[in-house]
Design a protein around this nucleic acid. Structure first.
Length: 382
DNA sequence: TAGTAGGACGTAG
DNA sequence: CTACGTCCTACTA
């Protein structure tokens, strides 16, 4: 049973995933946005991760008991969602980050965000595409104990066959998160009487959405900063634009809008008669079918990503569009996307880049004249 | 440590 | 047979 800050909550309230945010909050800030089912996520993740979860406690023998009793600290679960790029600002202390690292040590991909955050001063800002789930560690313990896992200190079990488990786990978690995010958006649309796609919003809709977001994230009033702007105006604004218009929370607004934009795009790409959101598997299926039944080529796939800078600009972008020069900014993410598209869960950048290199002989892609890491060039730019 | 280059072989369509 | 996917070695930044 999940609790929040020691208080028993209803089953509906158990469905909590905190998209933690807001740069001006302290590391101890309370959950801001309830967006998904931590209970379900934990059910998926903890099946395979109990050992690591308990190791987390083992690392802190002194404070754990007392801390948990008086002020349950939170466990943060980072979930990388391929093809679903959005940003969250997470103000947690370095100490919390190091703790978080130990929650899922066998799932480094989930935690890659912390590499960047750790280079900054405390309170740290973890800025990364993805979602943070936050739950009470106390409740995580209760769940584990309830599952009959009393052997707290066991660091050797569960070390083999992790990769397959992680892949399956990742897919399940991604699917759950995507599903929950879409539900939240649908609910907001009903409440606000707006369309899910921000591009279609009038300035009035934008103001409604801002009010809603202020409410969710407990932000100061920001509507004035975006007066007379339509949804399409909003959608072409950069993160910096948001910051300039709204300095304390521009990042967050941009991130939240990014969620909506991406969700709308994915829904649009999905079967139009389907009202539900698409998970990783569905994304794969719709991606295949969107290409006239023809198997997509890697170079086509890369171009597809490049043509969607709103969604993929953080992992691949044009350096010089006219010359067809592009850079892969997040090689692991691009490889993951390619793996999803081709139903190759073991895809990585090593293999993807090998395929790119096959294009050298075929005259499809080459390295630019001045070779740079992760930079390639289409021989015949569109 | 991560990316680059390319050989060798396997495999699905 | 094509277009990768996988695994590998050697090299480089």
């Amino acid at each position: 049973m999940l609790k929040t800050h020691g208080t028993q909550v209803s089953p509906s309230e158990q469905r909590r995933l905190q998209l933690t945010s807001s740069s001006h909050h302290s590391s101890a800030s309370s959950p801001v946005l309830v967006q998904s089912s931590v209970l379900k996520i934990l059910n998926v993740v903890q099946k395979e991760e109990k050992t690591q979860t308990f190791n987390f406690l083992q690392d802190e023998p002194h404070s754990s008991q007392k801390t948990m009793m008086s002020s349950p600290s939170r466990t943060h679960v980072y979930i990388d969602v391929p093809a679903f790029s959005y940003t969250h600002l997470v103000p947690y202390s370095a100490e919390e980050h190091s703790k978080t690292f130990q929650v899922f040590p066998s799932m480094p991909e989930y935690l890659s965000c912390f590499d960047t955050s750790l280079s900054e001063d405390t309170p740290r800002m973890a800025r990364k595409t993805g979602v943070y789930a936050s739950v009470d560690r106390q409740e995580e313990l209760l769940e584990c104990k309830g599952a009959g896992q009393d052997s707290v200190i066991d660091s050797t079990a569960g070390q083999s066959g992790q990769t397959d488990v992680e892949d399956r786990c990742l897919e399940q978690v991604q699917s759950l998160v995507l599903d929950e995010v879409q539900k939240d958006i649908e609910m907001a649309c009903k409440l606000l009487n707006i369309t899910p796609d921000p591009v279609e919003w009038t300035s009035g809709h934008v103001q409604k959405w801002l009010l809603w977001t202020e409410h969710l994230y407990r932000l100061p009033q920001v509507g004035k900063a975006f007066l007379h702007l339509s949804g399409s105006d909003l959608c072409v604004m950069s993160e910096d634009d948001f910051r300039q218009r709204c300095s304390p929370c521009g990042d967050l607004l941009f991130a939240h809008l990014d969620i909506w934009k991406t969700a709308a795009w994915m829904k649009d790409r999905c079967s139009p008669q389907t009202s539900g959101f698409i998970g990783a598997d569905d994304l794969c299926a719709e991606a295949d079918s969107s290409c006239s039944g023809q198997p997509i080529h890697l170079w086509q796939f890369l171009r597809e990503l490049l043509l969607k800078p709103h969604n993929y600009g953080r992992c691949i972008r044009w350096i010089n569009k006219e010359k067809g020069i592009f850079k892969i900014e997040d090689s692991a993410h691009v490889a993951k996307l390619w793996g999803i598209r081709k139903k190759r869960p073991a895809m990585n950048y090593d293999k993807l880049s090998r395929s790119i290199r096959q294009y050298y002989k075929k005259g499809i892609i080459k390295k630019p004249d001045v070779s740079q890491r992760l930079v390639y060039q289409f021989v015949h730019p569109v």
